[in-house]
Design a binder for these strands. Sequence first.
DNA 1: CTAAGCCTACCGACTAGTAGGTTTGCGCTC
DNA 2: GAGCGCAAACCTACTAGTCGGTAGGCTTAG
Lengths: 197, 197
Amino acid sequence: MSTREKLLDSARYLIQTRGYSGFSYADVAAQVEVRKASIHHHFPAKADLAKAVVEQSRGIIGEQIRMMESEAFDPLRQLQGYTGYWEKCIADASAPFCVAGMLASELDCLPEELAESVRMHFRDLSRWLETVLTAGAQRGVFTLKSAASVEAESFMSTVYGAMILARAYGQPDKFTQVVEGAMRRLLHTDAGAASPR
Amino acid sequence: MSTREKLLDSARYLIQTRGYSGFSYADVAAQVEVRKASIHHHFPAKADLAKAVVEQSRGIIGEQIRMMESEAFDPLRQLQGYTGYWEKCIADASAPFCVAGMLASELDCLPEELAESVRMHFRDLSRWLETVLTAGAQRGVFTLKSAASVEAESFMSTVYGAMILARAYGQPDKFTQVVEGAMRRLLHTDAGAASPR
DNA sequence: CTAAGCCTACCGACTAGTAGGTTTGCGCTC
DNA sequence: GAGCGCAAACCTACTAGTCGGTAGGCTTAG
């Protein structure tokens, strides 16, 4: 594992736990066991480091979007993959919060370039979610009660809110509980018109 | 308005926008137009100032709880009062984020006493919500699909998540949109058994 | 020979917090 | 009512430590 990758990993963890203004080059240097100046060699400014972390995440979402466009995929499994990923991360405390969610809450005091990157992450994620929900609705797996874009943003909100809740209570299972509720709501609940399985 | 109140107001706003580690005594001093040392006179340490802000919020919730216990109240109106309050705050940018939500995301790097105060805020709020939802369900105003405590935490999550979303998009109406969806879900949606109005 | 990678040593700006002096206003006694 | 005492409020001036960032030198691999 290269130093650059180690720096990104460390920065990601620190941002997730303490936020952008809550971590310093000194913290990263201590974790990775290099000197502060060496970090500047890879990432000239703090904003560059943080932005690289966000872009890394965006890359992963981008991959998934491309996969969906090219081949067959299971909407339900996709969504479960997303929530399951965070359930695991939060449960084992390896990543107790989405890095973009953390940065979003500090958005107003972030360097503009970094802020833009965070906004793009949210746009990417909600678009991905919208696609998954739309496909799921077409196949009769999900029941949407309003526009797919609105449902996507609601679901996203619940997931991010559940992260805050789990952290506030120090109980990872709170996340699971809330997210499972949101998931159940999307699955067939024989409402209104007659279109049960 | 006393200096102490001005300091609390300023600190509240700064925490909401920048977080605990993102604001300094110098920022507060500039806003209130006093010297840094004067802030220390009222609040010896930064944690004391932040804690006082959180406790102020807790006091307001506490009042509402006591009001509910003593006299008749309208659960729907209570809930609409809560969400409406934040809609207004976010729309006019006077308070773009709940102070406890902001601090919760930084919880791991907060002084213990302050962290405890934040945890208590969440406990208070979810208990209040649970009471409102339970009363509303008894009167047939709300339809709960799982335990009141779970519904309360889900609703809370959605509200906090919607704050993040609105901030990330820079669009206050996103908050309204998501929260209205959550509200609609609680109101009578003729599901399962036959108990429509 | 070059360039990437990492280092030591430093910079000015800012951090929370402290020491100690000055101002202000209120209650008490002559 | 004048003078006194006292405490709250606010100030200037300072501390030690940390912040992000820079300059420039050393080492190593191609």
